[in-house]
Write a protein that binds this DNA or RNA. Sequence first.
DNA 1: TATGAATGAGTCTTCATTCAT
DNA 2: CATGAATGAAGACTCATTCAT
Lengths: 202, 202, 202, 202
Amino acid sequence: MRILKDDKYNSILRAAREEFIGKGFKEASMRSIARRAGVGLSNIYNYFRNKDDIYRAILEPIKNELFAFIARQHTEETVDFNRLAAFGHKEEIIDQYIDFVCKHREELRLLLYRSEGSSMEGFRDTFADYLTRVSHNYMELEKKQYPATRDISPFFLHVMCSWMVSVLGEIVTHDLSREKIREFFREYFRFEFAGWRELTGT
Amino acid sequence: MRILKDDKYNSILRAAREEFIGKGFKEASMRSIARRAGVGLSNIYNYFRNKDDIYRAILEPIKNELFAFIARQHTEETVDFNRLAAFGHKEEIIDQYIDFVCKHREELRLLLYRSEGSSMEGFRDTFADYLTRVSHNYMELEKKQYPATRDISPFFLHVMCSWMVSVLGEIVTHDLSREKIREFFREYFRFEFAGWRELTGT
Amino acid sequence: MRILKDDKYNSILRAAREEFIGKGFKEASMRSIARRAGVGLSNIYNYFRNKDDIYRAILEPIKNELFAFIARQHTEETVDFNRLAAFGHKEEIIDQYIDFVCKHREELRLLLYRSEGSSMEGFRDTFADYLTRVSHNYMELEKKQYPATRDISPFFLHVMCSWMVSVLGEIVTHDLSREKIREFFREYFRFEFAGWRELTGT
Amino acid sequence: MRILKDDKYNSILRAAREEFIGKGFKEASMRSIARRAGVGLSNIYNYFRNKDDIYRAILEPIKNELFAFIARQHTEETVDFNRLAAFGHKEEIIDQYIDFVCKHREELRLLLYRSEGSSMEGFRDTFADYLTRVSHNYMELEKKQYPATRDISPFFLHVMCSWMVSVLGEIVTHDLSREKIREFFREYFRFEFAGWRELTGT
DNA sequence: TATGAATGAGTCTTCATTCAT
DNA sequence: CATGAATGAAGACTCATTCAT
């Protein structure tokens, strides 16, 4: 029974994933999910409360993983003026990121662009806000160490972060090889670092 | 009759605008538009062919204006190595842009993020591609004049342009005052210019 | 004005003919007719009372011509025992018939098979009944002259006549050359005549 | 539940039958069927996929029975030159046929004349073609045994078969008693047989 | 746990016709 | 004579969810 239950649960989840990825949240249909999963439509409601519940069950883990990854980058090391540059060159970190992105390309696309109508709608903003908060903290710390660092406006910081989000969006939208992504990141970090120095005067 | 007709036409358009802005294309309902406009549902179809037709009637002008604005920036002046910087500082141009953005904030948000299901879906990409094409041409010209200019990868250029799109998105999403926007642009252009010089080696 | 009016009248008629032939009565749409005719939709109602009115304007003449043709065959000559056979061989009559059929193939198809919903629906029956009545009269006369002629049941007569209708239907449905039609009639008359003699004992 | 389900299923089917018979396929409305059946409109779609599906559920069995009957007549006996005549006189076979026709009068009328718009449209042709094919095979066999048999044109054969179809149509259209039908068949077979001999020279 | 039945509001679009001008 | 606007009902079908069993 336990096993059977898990089986169904998972097959519903798998079916829903396919359906959502294929059609986006709004267009996805419970009927169709049930059909794909080989489960009675109403039986789905024994496993999930509603459509949105399934959606979250699929995307929340990825969202958490993503957030956790970001958090880790900004906490596990001591603040370092050259961190940003360093970050750009630390291949292992980039590799982890690329791994993650490639593994969840489709879910991320879903999350970023096709969540309208669900409780995850506005994820782009949520994510950008999260990045902004984290970055802001980071900059505060940095400023304590290097008081000469010039301020940048909160909104610009926000736009920078939403840029990162859109960068993520572009990557998952285009089918780039890992090598291409790595190349891109190199350009990206050089570009960003230069701009950053210009603004902060460091 | 003429006047009456225009009245209804406009009230339908206004009602539809509100509805679309409030719910996005997919969620907007013809019934609701009719109710808002104080018009018989079927009568709408004497003015517009279908839902999408109304949608386009609202957004196509804005889209065209936007594209025209971009095109104008890239054609009416001779190629100039310092153009980008110059562009960044030409207050009048920025002012025009800000005017436009502030005037059509809501429509642009609609266009960028809530057009799924309509014939305008994928506008973010369409716009980014358009920018990419225009920018690519511009860089070709520049390279002819300054052969030393280093190449940047097409994908990076694409990401840069999709950044501009997301910048636009951020601006219309947050309720910034004109002054805030202007401030932002100043930072933006300095940042971008610095990054650009780093990459192109100029 | 008169001329102008006739122009419109005729162009509506022509447009309607195309529409009806293309879609049948039910599926044909007034809007579409108006569009084809280059006439305002509501203006049609200045020339015709309603959809059905147009339909009749197109098909009644053909129907009348057809009925008149039948009537002529059965009245203009004195009753003659060998008439049927004779009829079968009188090439000129057959030719007239073929002319008529070929000229109005499409209208006849419309009339016979696609009039559902109009006041002409049930034309197959109407026509068969008409033929039955005419034939019945004819047989009465014949019986007066040749009292030995055996009776055939009214229903059989009716079926015979509805056969003629379906023969007409088959001809207009298949794109037969005039020669093929003529050949067919020869077989048809021989067959029919033989059967007829068997039943009437003549 | 099983019983309940069957109840609803059948009441939908019954309601649909009435509706279709009353209005023909095109004019029948799902709303109206639901009303007649005392069922929620959308609930119908738990039993049938769509309008056409219901239509087929009603008519396919009758169609199959009809085709099967024809096939049986033409296969279960050895070819026999006098078969046709024999067929005409074999009362039991005619009786079966009459039974079938009387039992499904209304469905047959529906099938033959009011199926436009459904997947059964063109049944008259389908049926006539089927008869033609079967008859053609039969004649081939006969010709092998009696090489002297003269040919008749394919189109004439086709018309003969479509005559049978229209005979069927006439029978189901008029409310004849079984006795009347039987009488009619006697005449019909004598007539047909005589014509046939005339043409084939046998 | 599983199911099939049920619900009721919802979708966009088309229709023939009438009315006021 | 001509028009565009207006009407109101109708079309088939889908939706996420709940209920009884």
